[in-house]
């Protein structure tokens, strides 16, 4: 019986969360700035993660998330389906991050050099973390997004599904494929290290 209770609680929590969001969104649509701020608080970490998956720079990612909120604030009346606020915001944030990434591209070499300097001496586990970080940065964009949302934001599949506008099964599939790629690349990394 216990698992059933858990399921019910999860469903209840999800409903409450969704209802709260709907209330906040309706108030924001009616010009209530505080409600919009609360929505921003709710989505900020996820938007930073989405932006970071493209920019690999926390400061820029935060700027992108904040700009996304500004665009959303400005154009909120254009939001046709209030239930899709999360995915709408994600699209805005993706566009802004992509623009920023293009502008940043020319500084890429400098950034890599800085990263190299920051490394220094590390333990074995830290080596793995560094290797995984490097692998993640080379993953396809969609895989990177879902990895950040899951492992940085600790979002549930349902929450990721809301933010990305895809089904939970698709979230699961993307995560599985991303992890497989990481394992594969880690194996290659280890074999290279072993060869060395």
């Amino acid at each position: 019986m216990r698992p059933i209770v858990h399921v019910k609680t999860d469903l209840y929590n999800r409903d409450v969360k969704q209802n709260t969001e709907t209330i906040l969104l309706n108030a924001a649509l009616n010009g209530d700035a505080d409600s919009f701020n609360r929505l921003c608080e709710r989505y900020y970490p996820a938007m930073v993660a989405i932006a970071y998956s493209r920019l690999s720079d926390r400061s820029l990612a935060e700027d992108a998330a904040q700009e996304a909120f500004y665009i959303a604030f400005r154009d909120i009346s254009k939001l046709k389906e209030p239930n899709h606020f999360g995915r709408w915001l994600t699209k805005i944030c993706r566009n802004i991050s992509s623009d920023m990434a293009k502008a940043k591209r020319r500084d890429k070499l400098v950034a890599i050099e800085e990263l190299e300097l920051q490394r220094g001496e590390t333990t074995e586990q830290e080596n793995y973390v560094e290797a995984v970080r490097s692998i993640i940065s080379k993953l396809p964009l969609k895989a990177r997004e879902v990895i950040y949302l899951r492992f940085y934001n600790k979002l549930t599949y349902q929450e990721i599904s809301n933010v990305l506008g895809i089904s939970q099964e698709a979230v699961n599939g993307r995560l599985r494929r991303a992890k497989k790629l990481i394992i594969k690349e880690l194996g290659r990394h280890n074999s290279i290290e072993a060869d060395l």
Binding site: N37, C40, E41, Y44, P45, V48, Y52, R58, A61, E62, Q125, Y128, V129, E130, V132, R133, I136, I147, Y148, F151, Y152, K179, I182
Partner: peptide, 15 residues
Amino acid sequence: TISRAVYIGEVKFDA
């Protein structure tokens, strides 16, 4: 390991 690799510090929205 992934969680550690993607950790970029806490972020909080400052309204």
